[in-house]
Write a protein that binds this DNA or RNA. Structure first.
Ligand SMILES: [Mn+2]
Ligand SMILES: [Mn+2]
Ligand SMILES: [Zn+2]
Ligand SMILES: [Zn+2]
Lengths: 140, 140
DNA sequence: CACACAATGAGACCAAGTATCAATACCCCG
DNA sequence: CGGGGTATTGATACTTGGTCTCATTGTGTG
């Protein structure tokens, strides 16, 4: 359901407009990761009259709130995945696009070690894991 | 020096052309990460007559050989950093762009744990660490 | 219910990257 | 050493992803 997204947006003090509700519904209906282009296609297929810019604007908003996160696919595309606002990482199925979230599982030790070796202060990190989900593994 | 890059390209059986030599020299002269646009600017400043497409083409080639690696900056830009062809990760200074490389330091344990929890088979991963290098930390 | 102002969509615009293609330049081979 | 087959080149057009502007509309608030 898109209610979750809308509620969080409301909380953040942004206006709950018609276009935003419709785009939120499109996002809720997707599974796995999606690109801005996907949403634009969805919207035009359903003849919702929402403008291209509005979709980009909402994605930015959602990303700011941490309700959606940007994933840089290995092929260079920019995709989004709906997710919890807390820090975590994504496993991306290269076959079907399914996403799993994984919370801290030892990354802090890695960054601490890297910091020690390099002398850098580490402020943030990004970890993306690519592979095959249980379904796609068995299906081949 | 750009000789390193050129030698590796030669080894890989690609032709050592004039434009490629010039672009390799531009890359060697940079420090930290750089974007395709940076190189294009460098080239046009020096009135080398190399075409835009040729720069993109060489970057692809170098990336294939692992002589250069793509880093997705947090702001969405695609940057490149010259590096060893062996697997490793990058620390990127958000202030000056300096890069440090760090080899395996515990990441395999993390991916194994993530795989166990999620049921995914993991084929590849990408880890990028962002922070401040020793210079930039003290300089503020 | 009115009003101030956030948000919208149309469209122009920009930047990054790709495709095409005739002209050129490597480099291999005799 | 010269050709000559072929990989590479640059110009140019095109596509795609994203931003900017601005007049118009729609929301939330009081
Ligand atoms: Mn990217
Ligand atoms: Mn690694
Ligand atoms: Zn899958
Ligand atoms: Zn620095």
């Amino acid at each position: 359901m898109s209610d979750e997204l809308l509620r969080s947006l409301d909380q953040a003090g942004v206006r709950l407009t018609g276009p935003r509700r419709e785009i939120a519904a499109l996002i809720a209906k997707r599974n796995g990761h999606f690109t801005a282009a996907d949403l634009i296609a969805d919207a035009s297929k359903r003849r919702l009259g929402v403008g291209r810019a509005t979709i980009f604007r909402l994605l930015d908003l959602l990303a700011e709130q941490g309700l959606v996160e940007r994933v840089d696919l290995p092929d260079g595309r920019h995709a989004y995945v709906p997710c919890e606002p807390s820090h975590h990482h994504h496993l991306v199925c290269v076959a079907c696009g399914a996403i799993a979230e994984v919370e801290d599982c030892g990354i802090d030790a890695v960054t601490a070690e890297a910091s020690r070796r390099s002398g850098f202060t580490i402020e943030s990190h990004r970890l993306e894991l690519f592979g095959r989900c249980p379904n796609c593994r068995s299906a081949n």
